[in-house]
Amino acid sequence: MAAISLAGLTKSFGDVTAVDHINLDILPGEFITLLGPSGSGKTTVLRMIAGFETPSAGTINLDGVDVTMVPANQRDVNTVFQDYALFPHMSVQENVEYGLKVKKVAKAQRRARALEALESVALGEYASRKPSQLSGGQRQRVALARALVNRPKVLLLDEPLGALDLKLRQQMQFELKTLQRNTGITFVFVTHDQEEALVMSDRIVVFNAGRIEQVGTPQDIYEHPLTEFVSEFVGTSNVFSGAQAQSLSGGLDRFSVRPEKIEINSAVTHEITAQGKLKDIEYLGPLIRYVVDVDGQHVIVLSQNDEQNSKDLANHIGHAVTVSWRRDAMQVVT
């Protein structure tokens, strides 16, 4: 049975439809990411699962029970908020204990459980501090401990890593993933960062304008994007359309090719080849990024940093080059 089942879920704010007939089944123990640009409805879906927003239409089932009209405080889910939402007047310990306190867990027991939760996020020594005395990363961990101490069936995470710097974010991505694997709790993770989604998720749900564009594993989403939106929002893509697409592919109206699947002036030419003019070379460290003009279309090519090759090509800016890719690198998109 699905841990969370959304059916025809819709939310309108006045004239704006933020979420438009979403159907989605989330499996128990799954790490699922709701990915999309801001305003795509992903956070609203999360807030409806948590119970902070009432759907305009549709139903939400948790473990097979319809909770559409059940208030937030009676749902067996916990949330980690984007701004952490730690209670500023309570100590770290009191923050973590609060959920147990309102559930009337005995004092000694909730102390022990809160401390255990804090230790699991390596913050045992900070129990008596106020949230304002902690760094962003530490607050993040307290928020996590405060949610997990309640042992929820589902943990909802609303862009929890957005405010952290890159290094810390990558570390937390790893820790969250490990935590999820060890606890077996269903994680519903909201982010606008496609890389984060690819790294962490069992499945990704791509949102656009209140609708689901595609659901699939990270590989599915990246290798086989079904729509132009997905192909461009997750990673970068070269999307060809119209007569150019037809003549290149021999019949396809519209297709996309990932930049790393294209080779430039390679010794072996693949099934699909095109002539173009090299416009630009960018040095990205491990990769080199080329921009090739093929009949007015800017084609992006990503290659491994082969120093000799890129030096040779550097003299070719403005000159003709050949780009080629395999037939199966092309993905039909709508």
Partner: peptide, 27 residues
Amino acid sequence: LPSSLLDASADLGASTLQTMRDVVLPN
């Protein structure tokens, strides 16, 4: 008062009255 504090309190299982007493009033 950030509204996320009120959401967080409800999320942790507090009733409206408990949220008032434990979160709103102290703040």
